[in-house]
Design a protein around this nucleic acid. Sequence first.
DNA 1: TTTTTAATTTGTAGTCATTCCAATTTAAAA
DNA 2: TTTTAAATTGGAATGACTACAAATTAAAAA
Lengths: 141, 141
Amino acid sequence: MDFIKTTTERFQSAGLKITPQRLAVFKLFDGNKTHPTAEDIFSALTRDYPHISFTTVYNILKSMVQLGSLRELTIDRERIHYDPDTSSHHHAMCTSCGKIIDVMFQLPLPKIPKDLFEQFTVDFCHINFYGTCRSCQQKGK
Amino acid sequence: MDFIKTTTERFQSAGLKITPQRLAVFKLFDGNKTHPTAEDIFSALTRDYPHISFTTVYNILKSMVQLGSLRELTIDRERIHYDPDTSSHHHAMCTSCGKIIDVMFQLPLPKIPKDLFEQFTVDFCHINFYGTCRSCQQKGK
DNA sequence: TTTTTAATTTGTAGTCATTCCAATTTAAAA
DNA sequence: TTTTAAATTGGAATGACTACAAATTAAAAA
């Protein structure tokens, strides 16, 4: 399914307007696997919208998260990264350059300790891998 | 091994002094499974050290992390939680009350997708579970 | 097409966790 | 006991994110 179309429909169903700024953000996220931050989105928008406000960017991101078009990643303590792929998958972050890549796999349920479910109703689970990416390893000789 | 003793030795080996404030922080973390924040530690210290500074708390926490006596958790986007158990284990956070509990298990290496290791040298992996704890479920009827 | 109206954008100011810095105090070596 | 390098303190700064009020605008209604 097309990300822009789906997201547009979600906004309309929620009674939200399709503004040029919103559409521009939808386009920036379409097929985007770089896990951008609010700052990244803001910078990309300043080309076409020199007067764009940080508040606008944060508002749009918040709406997209609420409507299920974006997922917030907790992998980076410094800032929130956003992922337009809301399907169940995980991430690896390079501790040298900060790059985040997708890790497409499913934690097998039987592997999760049973006593967790006795104390807790688990809604979802995020696995964060930390290490060094190839290009940083080569740079570091 | 005793946490206070080990941590004290690490500080001394690194040429760092054992101040009353530092020892008090070591004691607060000894056997502590509540995953406190800097604020929690600060509050606990104000009883005995009414003039304790946030900078001191943060300095001590940073040294303890560097010396391997504490692990920083990335499970909560709002603030850093600290765990004196630096062994490989994972966490579950209640999205209602914020409580964090330990999840003692090891992700079986063969379960991790091979292509990750082709792009990445993995140093460590943190699994974060999110959901609702028993007491919050009961409160919420 | 024009009008209307509620929603959106914008800029500024505020919040909150965390860090920086310089002056004072202190652990612990001599 | 003296000395000194290191630690503590308080206040100010940083940086991501949020709140708010005024100006603008999407899009429904006329």
